[in-house]
Design a protein around this nucleic acid. Sequence first.
DNA 1: TCAACCAGTCTCTTTTTTGTAACCACCCTA
DNA 2: TAGGGTGGTTACAAAAAAGAGACTGGTTGA
Lengths: 127, 127
Amino acid sequence: MGLNSETPPIHTETSFSGRTKKIVRDPCLQPCSIERGMRILGGKWKGSILWHLKDGPVRFNDLTRMLGGASKKMVDQRLKEMETIGLVERHVLQTRPIAVAYSITDFGKSTLNVLEQLKTWAEQHGI
Amino acid sequence: MGLNSETPPIHTETSFSGRTKKIVRDPCLQPCSIERGMRILGGKWKGSILWHLKDGPVRFNDLTRMLGGASKKMVDQRLKEMETIGLVERHVLQTRPIAVAYSITDFGKSTLNVLEQLKTWAEQHGI
DNA sequence: TCAACCAGTCTCTTTTTTGTAACCACCCTA
DNA sequence: TAGGGTGGTTACAAAAAAGAGACTGGTTGA
C-alpha cells in the first residue's frame, strides 16, 4: 500500500529561504531528550542491571551470574559508569571475607517506570 | 553511607550445589525482555526517528535535517533496520520529481508510550 | 593441600559502529 | 547552464565496544 488520500499529509518542518535554499525550522541542534535519555539507559546491560538491583543490593559476582552472557569486564564497566552517574552505589561490606555489594539509588529507582514500560512492551510484542 | 541495619538484605539468587559449587537459581539464560527491548529501541537515533515520524510521514532528506548531527548514512541504515523489523514504512511518492516518505507503522506507534516515558524522565532529571 | 570462592584487572583480538566525503542520475528554476 | 534540490550508494578511515582468557592475592571449607 502506498500513500493514498486518507493518509496524513507529509509532515515537513522545512521551508525555503529566498526561493531555492531549503532550511529546517526545527532541527534538533543537540540530540533531543529521547536521544539523550537513550545514551544513559540504552547501553548494553544497563537496563538489566538496574532491574536486577531493584529488589535489594546484589554482590558483584552474583550480578554477573544473573546477567547470563555478560562478562565480568562488561558488568564492571557498566557498574562504574552507572556509579559515576549516580544510578547505583557501591558498598564494601566489612565481613570476612570482604565482599562488595551494589545497590540502586533513588535516581536509579526513577528509571524503573521506563524500564517497566519497556519490559511490558517487549513482552506484549514477543520481542 | 555504607550498608547499615536499615538497608535491605543482600539479594542473592544463588545457592550451593553440593557443598562448594555456587549456582544461580535464576540466571538470564538469554538476555531478559528489557535487554531484548533495548536492542530494538536502544540504538542510536532509533528513538528519535520514531518520535519525528509520529505526526505523519516525513521525507528522507527532511528527516536527516531534523536529526541534527546524524549523517544520511546513519539515517539510511537505521531506517532500513527499522523497516525490516516493521517499525516504519517506506513510500515512494509518484510525484515529479519523485520523492520518498517514511511513516510510522502501528507497531512503531506501540513504542511511543515507552518513548514518551523516557522523554519525560530525561526532561525531569535534566539529562 | 586442593579447589572453589571473592572482586576485579590486564592484555589482546575481533567486531561493530560511526563519520567523512565523494559520487550517481535525475529534476527544477533563476 | 549553473547551482540548488531529490534519495540514496560507495569506499575508506577512525573510533568505540565487546569478548576471551589469564592473572592477582587473599579466603575458606573439605
